[in-house]
């Protein structure tokens, strides 16, 4: 059912499914944080290696990952190419065609950026494929004490992603039927696109306003509320958090020992 676009695609009894969303979030944040803080190929490569090695344990197959996340590979390649093109040109010249100049230094920089992009993205993907938004909202509100009105408002809106995607398709057909289809030159197409986007936002706000009435009519918005399902931690969560910390520490240590650690703001 396309309305459930954002429900986790991972099934079964893997570690990630059993863990509380917060421990997964914690692990993903520390790994992302360390990889973010330094731009060097060692920390990125170490983190990426651990992430890939852990996949079987997490219940994620390489095939499933590639099916879902192939744009990630392209994005990493593009980022690597862009940096190699635009970085300071140090070292020997590797390629020089017209305005395009790649040197050893710039290509090394590109490789570091590409690896770092992959290492940054994977934790987010692991989180996305294994976490039900409802469970995440429960954990954020109950364990982290995030303001529940905002957490639940966002949760209700996220449920609408699938409906809005369907509505986008319907709007496209409805406009084609009126004589405003996705055809013609770039200017006409852009104008049609903007019109369709406006139509979607009108429908979205109408729906949201009605939804707000329905939620308020069911008592939503008061300061105190209870939770039908309790968000709990188990020993698995300690493991998930510890492994996350371990990978982050390992990546940082390796880069410092190798002398490649380059702090982001330096």
């Amino acid at each position: 059912m396309s309305s459930d676009l954002l429900t986790p695609s991972l099934a079964g009894n893997s570690v990630l499914i059993r863990a509380n969303p917060l421990s997964k979030l914690f692990a993903a944040v520390v790994i992302t944080g360390v990889v973010m803080l330094s731009i060097d190929w060692v920390s990125a490569a170490v983190a990426l290696t651990f992430e890939i090695l852990l996949m079987p344990l997490l219940g994620i197959s390489m095939r499933g990952l590639l099916l879902r996340a192939w744009p990630l590979l392209i994005a990493a390649l593009v980022a690597a190419y862009g940096t190699a093109l635009l970085a300071e040109k140090t070292g020997a010249v590797l390629l020089h065609v017209g305005p395009v100049l790649f040197t050893e230094g710039s290509v090394a920089a590109g490789i570091a950026i590409g690896l770092r992009g992959l290492a940054l993205a994977l934790p987010g993907i692991f989180l996305a494929v294994s976490t039900d938004p409802t469970d995440l909202a429960d954990a954020l509100a109950q364990k982290l004490h995030a303001p529940h009105r905002f957490v639940l408002g966002a949760l209700a809106a996220v449920r609408l992603v699938g409906l809005l995607v369907e509505q986008w398709q319907t709007l496209g057909l409805a406009r084609h039927a009126r004589g405003a289809g996705a055809e013609g030159n770039a200017l006409v197409r852009t104008r049609n696109f903007l019109g369709q986007a406006f139509g979607l936002i009108v429908q979205a706000i109408r729906r949201a306003t009605r939804l707000a009435v329905a939620m308020e009519a069911r008592g939503f918005g008061a300061a105190e509320r209870t939770w039908a399902r309790k968000s709990t931690f188990s020993p698995v969560d300690a493991w998930v958090a510890a492994v996350g910390l371990g990978i982050a520490a390992g990546a940082a240590t390796a880069a410092v020992l190798a002398g490649t650690w380059t702090f982001l703001l330096s």
Binding site: A156, R159, R207, R218, G219, T226, A228
Partner: peptide, 18 residues
């Protein structure tokens, strides 16, 4: 436009929780 949550049980519980 009056369904709030993704699962039937949670949806029915929502008002009582509030």
């Amino acid at each position: 436009s009056q369904v709030v949550l993704a699962r039937v049980g949670d949806e029915v519980a929502f008002g009582a929780e509030n």
